[in-house]
Deep mutational scan, measured.
Amino acid sequence: KLETFPLDVLVNTAAEDLPRGVDPSRKENHLSDEDFKAVFGMTRSAFANLPLWKQQNLKKEKGLF
């Protein structure tokens, strides 16, 4: 399991300012399950079932792209 970080560490943070080991294209993977659901309004599995373009739009909207 990946290390999780608080939302404010990941949202609207440039790649070079992210904690070590965080993939800038997969910031959402480093949210706790609770934060993930609070941000996206759905579970990880529901998010994973969305088309890629919709996932990317949601990530942009939430500052996690």
Rank of each mutant, 00 (worst) to 15 (best):
Lys1Phe: 09
Leu2Pro: 13
Leu2Met: 15
Glu3Ala: 11
Glu3Trp: 04
Thr4Ala: 07
Thr4Pro: 06
Thr4Glu: 15
Phe5Lys: 15
Phe5Asp: 14
Phe5Gln: 14
Pro6Trp: 00
Leu7Trp: 05
Leu7Pro: 12
Asp8Val: 01
Asp8Tyr: 03
Asp8His: 09
Asp8Gln: 09
Leu10Arg: 07
Leu10Val: 06
Leu10Met: 13
Val11Phe: 04
Val11Leu: 13
Val11Gln: 14
Val11Ala: 12
Asn12His: 09
Asn12Arg: 07
Asn12Thr: 12
Thr13Arg: 07
Thr13Met: 11
Thr13Pro: 05
Thr13Glu: 09
Ala14Thr: 13
Ala15Val: 10
Ala15Thr: 14
Ala15Leu: 09
Ala15Glu: 14
Glu16Gly: 12
Asp17Pro: 05
Asp17Lys: 08
Asp17Met: 11
Leu18Phe: 02
Leu18Ile: 08
Leu18Asp: 09
Leu18Asn: 03
Leu18Gly: 04
Pro19Tyr: 01
Pro19Met: 05
Arg20Gly: 13
Arg20Ala: 15
Gly21Ala: 11
Gly21Thr: 10
Gly21Arg: 07
Val22Ser: 03
Val22Gln: 06
Ser25Ile: 06
Ser25Thr: 13
Arg26Ala: 15
Arg26Phe: 13
Arg26Leu: 10
Lys27Cys: 12
Lys27Asp: 05
Lys27Glu: 05
Glu28Gln: 01
Asn29Met: 15
Asn29Phe: 04
Asn29Arg: 12
His30Asn: 04
Leu31Cys: 01
Leu31Arg: 01
Leu31His: 02
Ser32Pro: 02
Asp33Leu: 04
Asp33Val: 06
Asp33Ser: 07
Asp35Gly: 03
Asp35Pro: 01
Asp35Trp: 00
Asp35Phe: 00
Phe36Met: 03
Lys37Asn: 12
Lys37Val: 14
Ala38Gly: 10
Val39Tyr: 06
Phe40Cys: 00
Phe40Tyr: 04
Phe40Ile: 05
Gly41Phe: 03
Met42Gln: 04
Met42Gly: 00
Met42Glu: 00
Thr43Met: 04
Thr43Ile: 02
Thr43Glu: 15
Arg44Ala: 04
Ser45Pro: 12
Ser45Gly: 14
Ala46His: 12
Ala46Phe: 04
Ala46Ile: 08
Ala46Thr: 13
Ala48Gly: 12
Ala48Glu: 12
Asn49Lys: 14
Leu50Lys: 03
Pro51Glu: 11
Pro51Ala: 04
Pro51Ser: 07
Pro51Lys: 03
Leu52Ala: 14
Leu52Pro: 13
Trp53Asn: 14
Trp53Thr: 14
Gln55Gly: 00
Gln55Pro: 00
Gln56Pro: 00
Gln56His: 13
Asn57Phe: 09
Asn57Ile: 14
Leu58Tyr: 06
Leu58Met: 15
Lys59Ile: 04
Lys59Ser: 03
Lys60Trp: 07
Lys60Pro: 00
Lys60Leu: 11
Lys60Ala: 14
Lys60Cys: 09
Glu61Ala: 09
Lys62Val: 14
Lys62Ala: 14
Gly63Asp: 08
Gly63Cys: 05
Gly63Leu: 06
Leu64Gly: 05
Phe65Leu: 15
Phe65Pro: 05
